[in-house]
Design a binder for these strands. Structure first.
Lengths: 144, 144
DNA sequence: CTAGGTGCAAAAGGTTTGCGGTTAA
DNA sequence: TTAACCGCAAACCTTTTGCACCTAG
């Protein structure tokens, strides 16, 4: 096929995926775009529906595959704050999540710099962490 | 029916549930016992199967109901570390979880005293938090 | 008497799998 | 050419729901 010049973000995607032995495909690009466009921590199903608008033939299996590929390559995080569906988040900075139990919204919250706040048994190799606060967001707390 | 004297733990259960407007039933007691007997963070399905041994007629719906009742009353926590099944934990002390991505085991890990380590937007009302570290446990890290 | 709780069975929702076909390296 | 990836559809697993019955308060 003919050589194609890449936009900078595409290049970043290609590199990150490549470093994990994965290819950049139109579907992976599309799924990543969906995550970037509306950073509301969509479920896999929501990602599927949004991606389907731009790419009607995309399938469930492919969306899961793409999401997993992005997670493996360090381009997105899996967020598990509740029973049922898993959510995804392209914000790779060190942050936690506030989950409102009334409206279900998930907010990114900052974390302090010093994160080795836990002492693990010797030999354990931590790779990443997830911090979730459950409660009521400002709006829901007021209405209660 | 005839008045029944309660063991201390039963009394505690009754009180905690009662404070949330819930009753102590044999099924809730059984589910709670299951959680206490083997603190390996079982999934709802695992709780169901273990409870079924002692109480063969117990149903799925009831196990979910009981687990939710225990969580609402502050007797157990829901633990969501991975895609798929939700897990449960009767350890109500402030602690986090280490999740080994190789063997799947979940270890309780201590957290430092100072936990309001996150600054939330004004008006937000936090109720509880969940800290999960993902990585490889000692054994799996060695084998790799 | 009534609200809360249970068991059953079915439905709903989320995720994975198997397979034939396609495409990039 | 070959390994990686895709779409489709079915399978699988987890969780919820509706309903009839029961029981504690």
């Amino acid at each position: 096929m003919k050589a194609r010049s890449q936009r900078p973000e595409e290049q970043h995607l290609t590199e990150q995926l490549g470093a994990t032995g994965l290819r950049l495909t139109p579907q992976r690009q599309q799924v990543y775009d969906v995550l970037l466009q509306k950073r509301d921590h969509p479920t896999a199903e929501e990602v599927f529906m949004r991606a389907k608008k731009a790419m009607p033939e995309i399938s469930h299996a492919t969306v899961y595959n793409c999401l997993d590929a992005l997670v493996k390559s360090g381009l997105a995080r899996q967020v598990t704050v509740e029973r049922g569906a898993t959510r995804f988040c392209p914000n790779m900075t060190d942050h936690g999540h506030f989950h409102c139990r009334a409206c279900g919204t998930i907010y990114d919250v900052g974390l302090p710099r010093e994160l080795p706040f836990v002492s693990l048994p010797p030999g354990f190799a931590p790779e990443c962490h997830e911090v979730t606060i459950h409660g009521l967001c400002g709006e829901c707390a007021r209405q209660k």
